[in-house]
Design a protein around this nucleic acid. Structure first.
Lengths: 237, 237
DNA sequence: AAGTGGTCTAGACCACTCT
DNA sequence: GAGTGGTCTAGACCACTTG
């Protein structure tokens, strides 16, 4: 609890981080100006700027010249399709089809990732994404209940093609950070049927854990697509 | 060529970048101090710091408290093994076996990546890496000639287990940046034989283009390993 | 015009490394 | 102790967005 010897901007950054994670500033309403924050904390303007810069680099907030400083809203460009090259997919948003929605008791593995209690309930979705009617990837998705109770009630037909905006609008859940783990496997007969591929066909498997701004896991997702369509680039420096 | 209206630190950063890429400061000898650079360019210290910070973020230089500012030397942690999970590989450096070395005329694809002229010569290596005598990944490597002429002459037996330090010591080539593109495929009979797997076995394929500090491509590499041992994590924010 | 973040300055003082 | 980068200050001025 003692800050002696600690860099002042780091202390300020920690304090601001806590306030952001506690939801003090909802997305779309600005934080106090750097002037105000500096005064409030009795530090020079440059020091407060430095503290804010830390949170910017963490991806927690964004600063817009002339407008203000804002808590970053949901993830953009998180589509699984970025892992695959499909002939017709010219950057557009692929169609989403919800194959099934059921209330389940999570398996131990999913439970661990969601950080929920043993025997906790979840909503399990099966979702197919396609370009021009051609199925590309198949997704299994688990959402913790009761947070997503409103989705369990609704009609999947009007959910649209993107899930994260849906989570935000209907359930007030903002996905802020995600970790994707890439692996390899082969399709079960049932999975292959949805994708129009032979059973046992090789597939890329992307396991995602998505978290909100406070670090709580709000979605577990397993995506499968044809291994031959998989491509992903990494830059090292 | 005109800097009017441009941010001063960006101009300074560009100037420094050019000098670094021209090789003005070899690795291990320090750049002038920020004081000296600021004075030399007639700007405040903070502005020069900001310019240096740009190059740090680009991964071009690194600053060490109390010692000075240095051009970053070769890539570290660039091992292909980071893409795979093998039972025995507890973080150690795997053994490297050079299967073959030959002088070749590059294919169009490799030529394009190396940025060399049509019909240009290259050195082609075939390399097997193993833990405890168990082969893990197989690599095809192309190196532009005449830059790597000294390797063509030497005995692969004394090359050791790491290539990038070898490139630096024997040929004066520093690998500074690399782009790895991940995909999936299957092994040819010859490839499978080296890895002790059946022909046609699914494999992960990592295609790398490695560049020096000036941006020139100095190595093309294709690495293959058992697809079932592949795993890679990506974080999105 | 008022308010926001971005750039630049000039200087003090601190922390680390080397000799 | 001399020299390096890292932190912090106090303030001027600029560029962008909004009413």
């Amino acid at each position: 609890m003692n800050d002696v010897g600690r860099r002042r901007y780091a202390t300020l950054a920690a304090s601001l981080r806590a306030r952001v994670q506690a939801g003090e500033w909802p997305p779309a309403i600005a934080l106090p100006s750097e002037q105000a924050l500096a005064q409030e904390n009795g530090v020079a303007l440059g020091t407060m700027r430095r503290a804010l810069q830390v949170l910017v680099e963490e991806g927690l907030i964004e600063r817009i010249h002339g407008r203000g400083t804002f808590v970053r809203s949901g993830l953009s460009g998180a589509s699984m399709l970025r892992f695959f090259r499909f002939g017709s997919g010219r950057g557009g948003v692929p169609r989403s089809t919800i194959v099934s929605v059921k209330r389940v008791v999570t398996t131990a593995e999913v439970q661990r990732q969601l950080g929920s209690a043993p025997g906790a309930a979840a909503l399990q979705l099966l979702r197919l994404r396609s370009f021009d009617g051609v199925p590309c990837v198949l997704e299994q998705i688990w959402l913790p209940l009761p947070d997503f109770e409103l989705l369990a009630a609704g009609d999947p037909g009007d959910w649209g093609d993107l899930l994260y905006p849906l989570y935000a609008e209907r359930c007030g859940v903002q996905v802020h950070r995600a970790v994707d783990e890439i692996g390899f496997g082969s399709l079960t007969a049932a999975q292959a049927r949805h994708l129009g591929l032979p059973a046992g066909h090789p597939c890329a498997v992307v396991k995602r854990a998505a978290h909100d701004v406070a670090g709580r896991c709000v979605e577990v997702r397993v995506t499968r697509g044809d291994a031959h369509a998989f491509r992903y680039a990494v830059t090292l420096t």
